[in-house]
Amino acid sequence: MTKFEFNHDIDIAWCPGCGNFPLRNILIKALQELELDPTQVVFSSGIGQAAKMPQYVDASYFNGLHGRGMAVASAISAVNPKLTVIAEGGDGDMYGEGGNHLIHNIRRNPHLIHIVHNNMVYGLTKGQASPTSPIGLITPIQLDGVYNQPINPMALALAMGATFVGRGFSGDQEKTKELIKAAILHNGYAIVDIFHPCVTYNKVNTFAWYKSHTFWLDETYIKTDKLAAMKLALDEEKLACGILFQVEGKSYPQRHPFYKGDLTPLYLRKRDPKVIEKLINPTK
């Protein structure tokens, strides 16, 4: 299986040992195992180390502005609901600069997968605090340590009414791959926050730190119980991984009155000049 892989060498801009490498393997495997046709898969990302992912997966992508990957993805999936759309980026990109799009797209429930590489730091811009940086993390700007409360993306997504809320860890490849596959198969918006160590700039949240602070939910966990999910999400000591919450909901194409059950992409809907003529000169 070579789909989504390049048939030539590619120059990857990540640091050696970075958690983005295993993430790339996981993602490509997930797409391959679901036997998706690469011509029907589109990535939309912003700017950051994480947001470079689409460059390294052989499929269509729109690598746009910092923070705006979700806005672009939302429109792509609305315009062609038959595509598999993946919005991907870092914690700074998606929770900081793009925070407003996060909130409002959960409300829209577009049919797409939202993958956030959460290394709790701004990698590309050399180590400043991100919205998920823990209090006390020392950075070139927060010299005495981060003092602002970090965002809790899982709790936020649950509170906003997301119908798929999941968390993974790049160190647990098999389980995280299955999590991504479940997200791709979900109808509507699915957020997957993935912990991964930034070996260059985050010396606190290391591979070992994630290993000892995370645990995976097992089969006995009932993922349709929102209060149970919220309880897990609010626990910032022991970080639960897996599908924290999943229920069926109406996705954007099922809600927006435009579609009426017809998912034909917009480019295939041709406009009849006669209809235009009638609108422009109604009495003729």
Partner: peptide, 15 residues
């Protein structure tokens, strides 16, 4: 900000 990014995304997907 979203509006124009969405419009650009929409053109990209064929609208």
């Amino acid at each position: 900000i979203a509006a124009l990014n969405m419009v650009i995304g929409a053109w990209y997907a064929g609208a």
